[in-house]
């Protein structure tokens, strides 16, 4: 049951990305291009997604537990550190270069073009490098 609902949820989320135009990296880049061919659409996407999520979370999080899992897993870290800021800045450079964020590129895999797959392959290599580096850093600190 959980798998079926996960599939349906992914479809709803992916349709949101597709309908909103976030599946198109050129449109995302035009949102960032405030001094050029600015397309403010993404601000409307973010605002409506944020509002819906904020209201929905209020209704859902009063429940003792989610439907198909034992408990809620909310991020517990609260520290604003160099990793968060540097990581977000590196992500911003990558997003600004090509217009793809992870949420935008996953549905684009279903379009039948090669480019999104190339991007995702590189993204996974980047994740693997970062995970390895983080583990080494943690070991160095512990030693």
């Amino acid at each position: 049951m959980r798998i079926v609902w996960a599939l349906i949820t992914g479809l709803v989320f992916g349709l949101g990305i597709t309908v909103s135009g976030m599946i198109n990296p050129s449109k995302v880049l035009n949102f960032f291009d405030v001094a050029g061919t600015w397309d403010p659409s993404l601000a409307f996407v973010m605002a409506s997604a944020l509002l819906t999520t904020a209201v929905g979370y209020r209704l859902v999080l009063v429940r003792p537990a989610p439907l198909f899992h034992a408990k809620f897993h909310l991020p517990k870290t609260t520290r604003i550190d160099r990793q968060l800021i540097a990581g977000s800045a590196i992500y911003g450079v990558g997003w600004g270069l090509i217009g793809y964020c992870p949420g935008g590129v996953v549905p684009a895999l279903g379009l039948g073009h090669t480019e999104p797959w190339v991007f995702v392959a590189a993204l996974l290599v980047g994740m693997a490098i970062a995970r390895f580096t983080r583990n080494q850093l943690a070991k160095a600190v512990a030693a």
Binding site: L84, W95, E115
Partner: peptide, 30 residues
């Protein structure tokens, strides 16, 4: 759906690496 790749394959690969590294250290994306 409307779709237009805005850069070359080389840019895709470079940007993909940056996004992968960035979201891991930054613990999240958009």
């Amino acid at each position: 759906p409307e779709f237009m790749m805005p850069g070359t394959t080389a840019v895709s690969i470079f940007a993909g690496l940056l996004v992968g590294i960035g979201v891991t250290f930054g613990a999240g994306c958009a």
